[in-house]
Computed example of a mutant assay.
Amino acid sequence: MANSPSGDSVTDRVVRILETFGTDRTVQTAAQIGRRAGLPSSTAHRLVAELVDSGLLERDDEHRVRLGMRLWELALRGSTALRLRQAALPFMEHVQARVREHTQLAVLEQGAALFLERLSSPASGANITRIAGRLPLHASSSGLVLLAHAPAELQKAVLASPLVALSPETITDAATLRRTLAEVRRDGWVIAPGSIEVVSTGVAVPVRDRGDVVAALSVVLPREAPTAGPLEALRAAAVGIQNVLAADRR
């Protein structure tokens, strides 16, 4: 891809445009996209128009722009995330029916916990996670499971970086985090009360594929809710998902 006068490629600029969209910002004008992507107005309008023509973005009757269905279609073709989600969903439904709180599936993606699926009941408690949303690895039960089994280089980077508190009980001390990750590897699960919201407890277990941890399966419970039953349900579901993934490879 040809570079702009500033040295960034067309691919870089397109990625920056797409990254301006989020779960809390689904519709924008081309001018807003340009400002948030750090692009000149003329460049932003031209690239947005080309992405609309290709179907990767869509424009509504008020000339506002949103992510296009074609982007979703292309992302799912042959996606390992889709395969994992399809394998996990029936077992997540079993957990959800038993626990009747938030049941979630997350993967490690670019140094964060990326949530692929979430099932909730109308009366489920507090939970800030969203499908396609991200959380820091040190600050959620899913993230702790993923970080505990992440490459050593990533663990070192997280431990050496400032650990931002999402609640008063988020782990922000590197020594405590290191000890917690060792416990996760030893026990095969984590219970994290108050790590994101003080009124909730996260419980998570790893999901493996050919021995490697590829996801974290979790529930978010009210703070004082018992955890033994949900943990049992999660561990059984993780085994079921792993069996389906293994069968798919035969």
Rank of each mutant, 00 (worst) to 15 (best):
G143K: 02
A192S: 14
A215V: 03
V219K: 00
L159W: 12
Q155P: 08
S218L: 04
L166A: 03
I191R: 14
G194A: 13
D173G: 11
D212W: 04
R210T: 09
T180H: 08
V199M: 15
L146Y: 01
V205E: 03
A233C: 11
E224A: 08
A225W: 01
E224P: 00
H149D: 13
I191W: 09
E153P: 01
V158N: 02
P222I: 11
V220C: 07
V164E: 15
R235A: 07
E232Q: 14
S218Q: 01
R179I: 06
T180M: 12
A225C: 03
L163D: 10
L221M: 04
D187P: 04
V239S: 10
R178D: 15
Q155I: 11
G211A: 06
L144I: 05
D209C: 11
I196N: 05
P222L: 09
H149K: 12
V219N: 00
G188K: 05
S141H: 09
T227W: 12
A152P: 02
G211M: 08
S140I: 10
D212T: 14
S140Q: 07
A152D: 08
L231P: 00
A165I: 05
A182K: 15
H138I: 10
A225H: 04
A225P: 00
T176K: 12
L159D: 04
G143E: 01
P206S: 02
A174T: 10
T176A: 15
I171Y: 04
R178W: 09
H149S: 13
E153I: 06
V199D: 12
R223H: 07
P226N: 08
I196Q: 11
V184G: 08
S161G: 05
A157P: 12
T227L: 05
A228H: 11
E224H: 12
L231N: 03
V164G: 06
G229W: 11
L154G: 10
V207D: 02
P151N: 12
S200A: 15
P168F: 07
L217C: 05
G143I: 02
T176E: 14
G143F: 05
S218F: 01
L234V: 06
A150K: 12
L221H: 00
P222T: 10
A228K: 11
A157V: 12
P151G: 08
V213P: 01
S140T: 14
A233F: 05
Q155C: 14
L177A: 09
S195G: 12
A238I: 03
G211T: 04
R235N: 06
T201H: 04
H149P: 04
A165M: 13
S200T: 14
P230N: 03
E169F: 12
V198P: 00
T176S: 14
R178E: 15
T176M: 13
R186C: 09
D212M: 10
A148Q: 07
V207W: 00
S161Y: 06
A160H: 11
A157H: 13
V207K: 01
A192P: 00
A228R: 11
P193R: 06
L234F: 06
G188I: 04
P230F: 04
L137E: 03
V184M: 10
L163Y: 09
S141K: 06
T172K: 07
A148K: 01
E169L: 13
R223N: 02
G229E: 15
I196S: 11
V207C: 04
R223V: 01
A139I: 09
V213K: 02
S161R: 15
L159Y: 12
E232N: 10
A233Q: 05
V184Q: 05
A160R: 15
L137D: 02
L159I: 12
